[in-house]
């Protein structure tokens, strides 16, 4: 297992958002987190690279182990953790810089200085995010001139540049058209050969298409978790069945 989580509870002030979540993520697999809005799946996702640390009055308990290391330990360097566990958000958020600089940014922050090495990394990251062919002739133009789908793939390339072991994706295709969505999904399919990917999605078909495992959350609890094919053909619990068949949620 790449990541193991045990008894995860999360509180926004006095309001509890997650209840004793136990969930493990196998290496080089895609796991989809599904559930109705407000069920805690994004909160849980943000626990995995301690993004929730930035929220005032928020408190997390439980254990999260990445490659056998407790990420909540005082000795954990959060910056280093987020380099290992990259994240792509729902809305593409490129920096107001060139395409090249967007991808190179993380590399420079991490101390890479050699221009040719940086250029190689940028190219590799753009290729891995399935964007290079579309932008290779305009790498030094503004990233804000890209379409929504291209911006999102640029954000994926930016996350990949620092070579994370895990990629968290919070509804990465929810604002994109079907073609752009398909390209993101193809990237996910390619990337999982080297990365562990955890994706939050409201799109059941997308979860069925891209993931190897699916976890269903409801009201802050992990209700059911299993192989995607099983979850979408014969889930064990009626609650899961009712949600994925659109009977509630």
């Amino acid at each position: 297992m790449k990541i193991r989580t045990k008894n995860i509870n999360f509180f926004y002030g006095n309001s509890q958002a997650l209840f004793d979540v136990n969930l493990d993520f196998p290496e080089c697999c895609v796991t989809a987190l599904i559930g109705p809005s407000g069920c805690g799946k994004s909160t849980y996702l943000r626990c995995l690279n301690r993004m929730n640390d930035l929220i005032p009055d928020a408190k997390a308990t439980g254990e999260i182990w990445l490659d056998g290391v407790d990420i909540n330990s005082r000795r954990t360097n959060v910056v280093s953790l987020r380099k290992q566990v990259g994240m792509v958000f729902q809305k593409p958020n490129p920096f107001p810089k060139t395409i090249f600089e967007n991808v190179a940014y993380g590399l420079k922050v991490n101390g890479m200085r050699n221009p040719s090495e940086i250029a190689d990394k940028v190219e590799q990251s753009l290729i891995r995010a399935a964007l290079f062919d579309e932008v290779k002739d305009r790498l030094h133009t503004s990233a804000l001139g890209l379409s929504g789908g291209q911006q999102q793939r640029l954000c994926i390339a930016r996350a990949l540049a620092v070579e994370p072991a895990v990629l968290l994706m919070d509804e990465p295709a929810s604002a994109l058209d079907p073609i752009a969505t398909q390209k993101i999904e193809e990237s996910i399919h390619e990337l999982k050969e080297q990365l562990t990917i955890i994706i939050v999605t409201h799109n059941m078909q997308q979860a069925a298409r891209v993931s190897d495992y699916t976890a269903f959350f409801y009201m802050g609890k992990l209700i059911e978790h299993g192989e995607t094919e099983t979850m979408f053909t014969r889930p064990s619990l009626k609650q899961t069945e009712d949600y994925i068949t659109g009977r509630f949620g």
Binding site: M204, Q205, A208, P235, T240, E241, T245
Partner: peptide, 9 residues
């Protein structure tokens, strides 16, 4: 509708 689970079956 791309049904799933019992509906798909």
């Amino acid at each position: 509708n791309q049904p799933v689970a019992h509906d798909l079956r």
